[in-house]
Computed example of a mutant assay.
Amino acid sequence: MSVVCGRYVVDGRDGRIGKVMGQVGPYVQLRPPGGGREWDCPPGALRPAEPRDELRAKVAELNRMSRLP
């Protein structure tokens, strides 16, 4: 699987959905939908997010943005 910044993926180790923010060394940096602390994941543990998961993540981001001043 190619790792593209901005794409939503699933961390296969624990099932968390994250947005790809970049790659540092051997790890891909992911951020949870709606913001929060990034975490590192080995590229081999990633899988593409299902369409419903990606939609849920985008809605979470839009909801967070609507609450900002």
Rank of each mutant, 00 (worst) to 15 (best):
S66P: 02
R52Y: 09
L62H: 10
G18S: 01
P33A: 11
A57G: 00
G15L: 01
A60K: 03
D40P: 01
G35R: 01
N63G: 14
G25Q: 04
M65G: 06
G44R: 08
G12V: 05
E61P: 00
R47L: 11
P32Y: 11
P51V: 09
S66R: 10
E54M: 02
P42D: 09
I17R: 05
D14H: 02
M65V: 15
A45P: 04
Y8L: 09
P43E: 07
V24Q: 08
G22T: 06
L30C: 06
R47F: 03
V24I: 09
R64S: 08
V24H: 02
R16T: 03
G44H: 08
A45R: 03
R7T: 14
G34K: 00
Q29E: 14
R47H: 12
V24P: 00
G44C: 07
G44Y: 07
P48T: 04
Y27C: 09
M65Y: 11
G18T: 04
P33T: 01
K19R: 15
R16F: 01
V3Y: 13
V28Q: 08
V3L: 15
G12C: 07
E38S: 08
R67K: 14
W39N: 03
G12D: 04
V24A: 13
Q23W: 10
G25I: 03
R52T: 13
R47G: 10
G6S: 14
R37F: 05
R64L: 02
R7H: 14
C41R: 05
R37A: 12
V4W: 11
P26H: 13
Q23D: 08
R7Q: 15
Q23C: 12
L62M: 14
A60L: 10
V9Q: 08
Y27H: 11
A60Q: 12
V3R: 12
E38K: 04
L46Q: 05
G25C: 08
R47V: 12
L55E: 13
